[in-house]
Simulated assay, not measured.
Amino acid sequence: MQIPPGWPGRGPRPVRLLRRPLQLTAVALLPDAPPSLLRLGRTSWRVARAEGPERIAPEWWRERPDRPFRDYYRVELASGARLWVCRSGVAVPGEAMTWWLHGRFE
């Protein structure tokens, strides 16, 4: 995986993660598209750039049908902040996707 110019560090993931992920609301053009707008409570952030998804699935050797896969995106907000967010599970017509903020690139 190639890291776009301007992204901090060498790794595709943040060095530090949030202790507990924060649930977000997101707007995306298509179910599999990266978010174009993120909301946390009453705060909204416009996404300027995004890279992904990187799919992370539960361990194949464990029978965990209740644990969906997660698609992770590296997003840069219009403010310049860079976040690591994920979408959980598959898109179901008429249902909102669950998005999470897992970390921030420093």
Rank of each mutant, 00 (worst) to 15 (best):
W7I: 03
G9M: 13
G11I: 02
G11P: 01
R13F: 13
P14F: 02
L17E: 10
L18Y: 09
L18K: 06
R19W: 09
R20W: 06
L22N: 01
L22W: 02
L24V: 04
L24G: 04
T25N: 11
T25S: 12
T25A: 10
V27L: 13
D32V: 05
A33R: 09
P35E: 06
L38D: 08
R39N: 03
L40V: 08
T43D: 09
W45E: 10
V47D: 06
A48W: 00
A48P: 01
R49Q: 14
E51W: 13
R55M: 06
R55W: 01
I56G: 00
I56V: 15
W61S: 10
D66L: 08
R67K: 09
R67H: 07
P68A: 07
F69K: 13
R70N: 08
R70E: 10
Y72F: 15
Y72W: 03
Y73I: 04
E76A: 10
L77R: 07
L77W: 04
L77Q: 03
A81H: 05
A91G: 13
V92F: 03
V92K: 12
V92M: 11
V92G: 04
G94H: 13
E95F: 10
W99V: 09
W100L: 15
H102V: 04
F105Y: 15
E106H: 15
